[in-house]
Amino acid sequence: MPRFQFPKSIQSRPVYGTLTARAGTSHLMLADAEGADALVDLAASATELMARAHVIYIPKATGATYTERLRALKPAQLYVGPSLDAALPRLRKALADAHMGLQIYLAGTEGLIGQAMQEAIAAGYPASAIQTEHRGSVARRVQCVHCKGITEDVETTPFVCSHCGLNLFVRDHYSRRLAAFQGVRVDAEDPGEVPVSEGLYQ
């Protein structure tokens, strides 16, 4: 699957790189859906990494497509979970138990990368120990600025807030603290005049 090239944007918007093997005492790898491909590529470039790797993987809509490929990498620990929420207690334990020299690798959707980054930073890891690579869907995690509810996997703008039902347009303004983009009512000045929804990045 070709990697998506994000257009140039404003400075609060995160930018993503390419995962590269780093020297470390242990390696925590978190991915969702097509993000598994990035871990496969990473492992191919440095096979010795996986013997000290803890992989947490959320397949989302990809089902069983990637799980066997990840298992074949022979990571020290592999967890395949139904959702990021379900995996959070495990992630937090892994972050709390880790020793100096842990390297963190995040791959997949922006929602996953952002929330895992939030957890790692809250646990005290410097941003310099965390690498990210975007793969798969360009859907966004969006906070409604009005009701504060977060809608996951938003693919269009405007969209309907899953909490308060307002029609929101999706800004590029991004909060790392919330791991979310900002959604603002699109028809605030002309109630009822909602533009036709477009896919993000069309």
């Binding site: 404003i10 400075q11 609060s12 918007r13 906070q143 600025v145 504060k148 800004r171 590029d172 303004h173 991004y174 909060s175 790392r176 603290r177 919330l178 900002q182």
Partner: peptide, 22 residues
């Protein structure tokens, strides 16, 4: 602008939406 959204941002991040000035 929203404090709740912008809290925790650095100088460039909270000014990100301003056009031209960057």
């Amino acid at each position: 602008w929203s404090l709740d959204f912008d809290i925790g941002m650095n100088f460039y991040e909270w000014h990100a939406p301003v056009p031209k000035a960057h």
